[in-house]
């Protein structure tokens, strides 16, 4: 990898993921975003978790991350080509099923996806666009793993 190719100098970048539902314990959600301001070579990672079960508090974290972390996230976006998908055939969020949102702005490209929370792999299989939804699901799973690992190491919390 020639590092230079995946990180255009100080290119603004934004990724936001939200997953939430209204359940037995009220409104519960996690949300994180990763952003790079124009002209900055570092980024910011923010994380919020509101779970009313067991831990009756809102966890809110914000930390500055190196451009190398941002580079890894961009690599993951490019590898799976999630930005080429469309959410038009995905199960729409209902009033009961919860919602997942993914927003990415990278260079000139921008996507905003919205779908009903995916609970099991059969939710993907049953949808009208299983290939696209699978790309979304695995990308989200992998980027969550990165964010949770970082938050876990930095703050010694179990972020979920």
């Amino acid at each position: 990898m020639s590092g230079a190719e995946s990180n255009k100098k100080h290119e603004p970048f934004y990724l936001r993921y939200y997953s939430g539902h209204r359940g037995r314990f009220g409104k519960e959600f996690i949300e994180f975003d990763i952003s790079v301001e124009p002209g900055h070579e570092w980024g910011t990672m923010r994380y919020v978790n509101s779970s009313n079960y067991r831990r009756d508090e809102l966890i809110r974290k914000k930390v500055t991350i190196s451009k190398t972390v941002v580079k890894q996230i961009k690599i993951m976006i490019k590898e799976c080509e999630v930005m080429k998908e469309k959410d038009s055939q995905w199960p729409p969020p209902g009033s009961s099923g919860g919602i997942e949102e993914l927003e990415i702005r990278m260079g000139p490209e921008k996507i905003v996806f919205e779908t009903k929370q995916i609970q099991t792999l059969s939710d993907i299989q049953k949808s009208s666009d299983p290939e696209g939804l699978r790309v979304f699901y695995y990308f989200v799973t992998d980027v969550k793993a990165l964010v949770y690992s970082m938050m876990g190491l930095h703050y010694k919390i179990r972020p979920f």
């Binding site: 009756d56 500055t64 190398t68 930095h154 703050y155």
Partner: peptide, 20 residues
């Protein structure tokens, strides 16, 4: 490629609360 993961910036860690 090896680098630090976290940098000193303006961190704020607001723990809690019901108010929020």
């Amino acid at each position: 490629v090896v680098d630090f993961a976290f940098l000193e910036g303006n961190e704020d860690n607001i723990q809690s609360s019901n108010r929020e």
